[in-house]
Design a binder for these strands. Structure first.
Lengths: 202, 202
DNA sequence: TTGCGAACAAACTAGTTGGTCTGTTTATGA
DNA sequence: TCATAAACAGACCAACTAGTTTGTTCGCAA
């Protein structure tokens, strides 16, 4: 008599799938390998998820999304002076992310590059998550205006788009050759860029 | 009696493979589909390329590399004032790239994100091509110094790294939802950033 | 207590995929 | 001209892969 725990079974499948997708991409992820990692069988898999694609959606929403939220969205709300504090947040990133991130990059960006043009379901979910991410940055810059940290005429949304772009680009570049200079370059130059958002009459 | 042309046969295979890899990724590319597109048979394929992987390498070096060179490296050599001319080069990009690029993004970046952590052969070739690309930007910024376009104390390599990062990030973001604002944001903010490279006593 | 659906196990299937093997035709150099 | 290798055609194969089916067991509500 084995004790059953449907929620935990589902969660185990999700975590193993997330791990495999992060390492090999969605198309590279093998259902059989997820089963091997969890010690479960086909029956369990297709009971909880109807198909490989639906599993992918679930991983995106239940694994990747919370990760982005805790790693980025939540810390951003605590930033007072974007120009000064955001680069500091970047510095702490190395310690805040799990080791697998160094090797395989940002799971959201990976899925974005692989699946956005392949599957509409992925595309929509990914686009929404990026929008949410940009929103968080926009709020951060907007909130910096009343306190005089950011110029009033700055287009916060445009700046937010740019910052997210730099982040994804940087993580992508780092994935290629893991060069420390690459990360350092983005860190220093984003800081220089942010200085341009300061009010003129300092 | 059919006329044989080994070089052309090889080239046809390369072009079809490039097209398929660009559309579906390397792992998503099917040898059979390349054969169908070219009207050739397995014999021809495995005569010219020993394996799918070797074909991938050949596509990278004989299709992607020349594309990067003609689209970026070559135009960069003609730029005099980086701060002013580079954003103009970006503006002309829309007309200079083939339509498939809009849909599937940068083939080099796609392969980078998909294969860098999967296969050492890909990783090394991709890293080298990125280095070459960064080199070209570095030269551009360095050459802008004697003429007073760029501050003498600017670290050209760091700036070059940053610019390539922004480009790849931007193309990647554009791939997700094809938003015009995304492209416009990067275009305008990269221009603002480049202004910080100007000498102070203008 | 019992009935019934949820939660699995496990064998099976049909289609796909990269790659091989054998044979045939074309070019090329001696 | 003729031998030899290059340049293919095309059938074949073994491994893999997502998904199905059937059957069994567990948990909960009535």
């Amino acid at each position: 008599m084995t004790i059953r725990n449907p929620q935990q079974t589902r969660e185990r499948l999700l975590q193993a799938a997330f791990q495999e997708i992060h390492a090999h991409g969605f198309q590279g992820m093998r259902v059989d390998e997820v089963l091997r990692l969890t010690g479960l069988q086909k029956g369990a898999f297709y009971h909880h998820f109807g198909s490989k694609t639906k599993l992918g959606y679930a991983v995106l929403e239940e694994q990747v999304r919370p990760l982005i939220e805790s790693l980025w969205l939540e810390p951003l709300t605590k930033i007072e002076d974007p120009v000064c504090d955001f680069p500091l947040l970047l510095d702490s990133l190395g310690e805040r992310i799990p080791p697998t991130m160094h090797e395989h990059g940002c799971p959201l960006n990976n899925l974005a590059q692989e699946m956005a043009s392949q599957d509409e379901g992925f595309q929509e979910r990914i686009a929404q998550m990026f929008t949410q991410w940009i929103d968080a940055f926009e709020v951060m810059f907007e909130q910096g205006k009343p306190d005089g940290y950011i110029r009033k005429d700055v287009d916060s949304r445009t700046v937010a788009r740019f910052v997210v772009t730099v982040l994804e680009g940087c993580i992508g570049m780092y994935k290629v050759d893991h060069a420390q200079e690459q990360w350092a370059a983005c860190r220093s130059q984003i800081s220089i860029y942010l200085q341009t958002l300061r009010p003129v009459n300092n």
